[in-house]
Design a protein around this nucleic acid. Structure first.
Lengths: 244, 244
DNA sequence: TAAGTAAGTGTTAAGTTACCACTAAGAAAG
DNA sequence: CTTTCTTAGTGGTAACTTAACACTTACTTA
């Protein structure tokens, strides 16, 4: 009886009867290109903010997307053409003023991809270098704020998780890894301590026999240990001003 | 001209033309009562899940609420009657299946209130003790998952921030503070180290001349330093099995 | 074969932390 | 009015961690 009740209630429920907020998903994609942190932006083809640069974003398609993360991935694929990166939810922003069309909420995702994959850049996206806390072009909506929030998250997480590992190509040397941490962090690190901690953290594993060769001693190649995705590790504690 | 264009576009935009997800806000409110972590639940008066226990939640009222946090506060006030607590966004959950009415997304907030304020409990809310990762009654929707996520956040943040300070009354002793950390954390802490760190962190200040008296040496009273809300501090590092 | 360069390792002083033992101040019991 | 009990609060040290820097290794280039 209650079940019948409930079924009737649900059948009668029509979301179009209510004034609901607009809901979108925006994605902040970071990559490290030529020794600098970059973020992926797209040029808006439609109103509002037509021709403005913006974070890749779009509406939730309830018939197509199974969940919020699916929306984020669809947007990433269709708007920027970048592959399947590391993806985590950053948070949500919603208020009356951020979109001229009305009360709007956005689910913001945070993505990291390695420089190898970031090469494929077919669509209307473009990599913009991140200076301090912003990017050169003015951004649509409140996207400058969203970007700042994402940067905050990234910079904070460097200090206590292995997050930036996802900015590295599949095979990497310890020095490349240290370099990426330094770029995200904004200051140099001490080699010996960095290596010891990274190896102790059991995050990565040697690729047998593989080396990167240059005009110097060949560097051993490593890869992320499958399974050990993003992990708490006090990877990067203090400064480290020197280098040997 | 572009502006005219844009104005026309916006005027013509009608959200009722689109199939959009349902959007709600849910709040996970924690408090420490009689030496145990508790969470506030309400009994649902309507379908779906009528008569089931659920997290306090509700729809965004776009004509009434300025932003997501305003929705959270309104829900807290009208559904549970608890005051203005510490409030932070936990994250968002959205997919096709979590609500029988259709594709639904919820913005989940995370609140802490002190045992003093948690006494006022006029409406249909009730405090339920949290055992391990759950609560006795079965919960509506995917609220058990949301609760688990909130617990994860709380327990993780204890170890590196001053978050649990918000579970304390306005005036508290250092021992009370330690006790709250221990309850959230689930294991005892070492007194001497805890005190030293807490005082070094510059989070709290002595209330001059105020003491809590019992049948023993009076304990000095402290309060949260205004401004120093939630702060990174490695308050609680290791076990501390003993006590002097 | 010497010079240059980046990879990779070892050592130690300075700084932290965990742990335990101690003193202090009141109430209650005898 | 002295002893006992209880919780508040302090001090010291051994074990461990970290920062800093010097060193060795392996390869290329001239």
């Amino acid at each position: 009886m209650t079940n019948k009740d409930e079924a009737a209630f649900i059948a009668a429920y029509n979301i179009h009867d209510y004034d609901v907020p607009l809901t979108t998903v925006d994605v902040v994609v970071f990559s490290v290109l030529s020794e600098q942190l970059h973020v992926q932006l797209v040029r808006r083809g439609q109103h509002p903010y037509r021709d403005c640069w913006a974070l890749p974003g779009g509406f939730i398609h309830i018939h197509q997307d199974d969940d919020l993360e699916a929306t984020a991935r669809r947007i990433l694929t269709t708007k920027t053409g970048v592959g399947t990166p590391y993806l985590e939810q950053l948070g949500a922003f919603g208020n009356r003023d951020r979109d001229p069309r009305g009360w709007a909420a956005t689910f913001v995702y945070f993505a990291l991809i390695n420089s190898a994959s970031s090469g494929e850049q077919p669509l209307n996206g473009r990599w913009w270098p991140v200076e301090e806390n912003a990017v050169t072009p003015p951004l649509a909506f409140d996207h400058a704020e969203l970007l700042a929030a994402a940067l905050g998250r990234l910079r904070s997480k460097v200090t206590y998780t292995s997050l930036p590992m996802h900015l590295l190509p599949e095979r990497f040397t310890l020095s490349q890894c240290q370099r990426v941490f330094e770029i995200v962090l904004g200051h140099p690190l001490e080699k010996s301590a960095f290596r010891r901690r990274l190896l102790d953290a059991d995050l990565i594993e040697r690729i047998d026999g593989a080396f990167e060769r240059g005009s110097n001693r060949p560097a051993a190649l490593f890869r992320l240990r499958p399974g050990a995705e993003t992990v708490f590790f006090p990877g990067v504690l203090r400064t480290g001003q020197t280098n040997g």
